[in-house]
């Protein structure tokens, strides 16, 4: 199973990519800890998580084909 992860705004300064595919992940908490292993500075970053274009605030199960987005605050104008 694969989950698509999208990165936005200043998060892409850390990841250098706007999206990645992640294999076998039970839920969003597991996914985030995997991402932090890959990108340690992510742990200092503020962002909210959206699952399939809907904001979530609690750990949510993932299935193949899901899309998870990490959205940081934007302030430029």
């Amino acid at each position: 199973m694969e989950v698509q992860v999208l990165f936005f705004g200043s998060i892409t300064d850390i990841t250098n990519v706007t999206e990645t595919m992640v294999a076998s992940c039970a839920d969003t908490d597991t996914l985030i800890s995997q991402l932090i292993q890959q990108y340690p500075t992510l742990s200092n970053k503020k962002y909210f998580i959206a699952l399939n274009q809907k904001m979530i605030q609690t750990n949510s199960p993932l299935k193949s084909g899901d899309t998870v987005a990490l959205m940081p605050p934007f302030s430029g104008g």
Binding site: K46, F48, M55, M71, F74, S75, G76, G77
Partner: peptide, 25 residues
């Protein structure tokens, strides 16, 4: 609802530091 707490100054880069292409705003 998106970000309950205000990020700290310099936590997020500004246009002065990060740059901006004029047409985007």
């Amino acid at each position: 609802h998106l970000f309950p707490e205000q990020p700290e100054v310099n936590e997020i880069p500004t246009c002065e530091e990060a740059g901006i292409i004029g047409v985007l705003p």
